[in-house]
Design a protein around this nucleic acid. Sequence first.
DNA 1: ACTCTTTCTCGAGACGAG
DNA 2: CCTCGTCC
DNA 3: ACATCGAGAAAGAG
Length: 306
Amino acid sequence: MGIKGLTKVIGDRCPNAIKSNEIKNYFGRKVAIDASMSIYQFLIAVRQQDGQQLTTESGETTSHLMGIFYRTIRMVENGIKPCYVFDGKPPKLKSGELAKRLERRKEASKSLEEAEELGETVDIDKFSRRTVKVTSEHNDECKKLLSLMGIPYVEAPCEAEAQCAALARDKKVYAAASEDMDTLTFSTPVLLRHLTFSEARKLPIGEIHLNKVLEGLNFTMEQFVDLCILLGCDYCDSIKGIGPQRAVELIDKHKSLEEIIRTLDPKKYPIPDDWMYNEARQLFLNPEVLDPKDIDVNGFILLYFH
DNA sequence: ACTCTTTCTCGAGACGAG
DNA sequence: CCTCGTCC
DNA sequence: ACATCGAGAAAGAG
C-alpha cells in the first residue's frame, strides 16, 4: 500500500518539493532501484496478445528477464548507473498486511478458475495478472542476469525501500528511484519517479526532495513519519475517520502521535486496539539495513565511463 | 450542500516496422 | 509522430 | 511460508 495519498499531500502542500527533469539531466548519476517491485511489474505486464507470459521452450517464464534486460540497457544508454536492491525478510509488523494480500490473491485465483470454466478470455487475462507473485526463483534469475551484465545489486536484510534510502542518504547513489512513496518515509533525500519509462512515454521524471517536503509542511522528520503512519502505511492501522486533511492538521497542531492520542476524542476517533504505532515509527526511523559503507554500488559498467 | 474518508476497481514493459 | 504486432 | 503499489471514481459518513 505504500503511504496512502502521500503523493497528493505533497503535490497540494509542497509543490516546490517536486521538480520535473529530462532524462538527460541524470547522465552519470547512480540510482538505487527496488528490484522486486520491478520484477513484479514485468511479470504482470510483459505478455503476449493472448495474455500468456513469455516462456522458454520448456515453459519457464522469461518475462521478468526481458523486462530487466531491456530497461537496464535503456538506463545505461542514458548514462544512468543502476544498483538494484532485492527484498529480504519482511518485518513482523507487516504480517497483517501480507495476510490481506494473500487473501486478495486467493480471491483472484477463484475468479480465475470461474473465468476459465466459462471461457471468458478477457477475465482470464485480468485475473491471471492479479494472481502473480514474485518467487525466489524469479529473484535468483534476475540476480544472475545482472551479474552477467555487470550491474551491481544488493540483497537487503529487510525492506528494499529502506536499503535504497540508506544508499541515497549515504551518498552512495544520487537518489532512490521508485514509484513507492515509502522510500521517502525511510528518509531518502531524493526520490525519482517515472524514471524507467519516461523516454518511451514522454513523461518527465519527477524528482521529490525530502528537505523541501519537510520545509513545505514545516515538520521535522519525526513528525513526517508520524504523518505517514496517520495517512496509512503497511505496518499498522490508521485511525478511522482521519484522512489526509485531518492528519496534516493534527500533526501540525499536536506535533506527535502521543499528543494526538492524548487529546483526540475517542468517541469520534477510536484509537485502534494494540496500536503498534511506535514500533512502526521505529521501523521507519531505524530500519534494518546493511551499512552502505560495506556496499559496492559500482558494477564494471562504471569502467565505460571512466 | 459540503468536506473528508473509505471502498472498490483497475492497471501496471519495451521494441521496431510501417 | 502514432499503432500495432512481437518479444520467448 | 511468505514477498507491490498508486490513482481515481463512487459511495458513505458527519
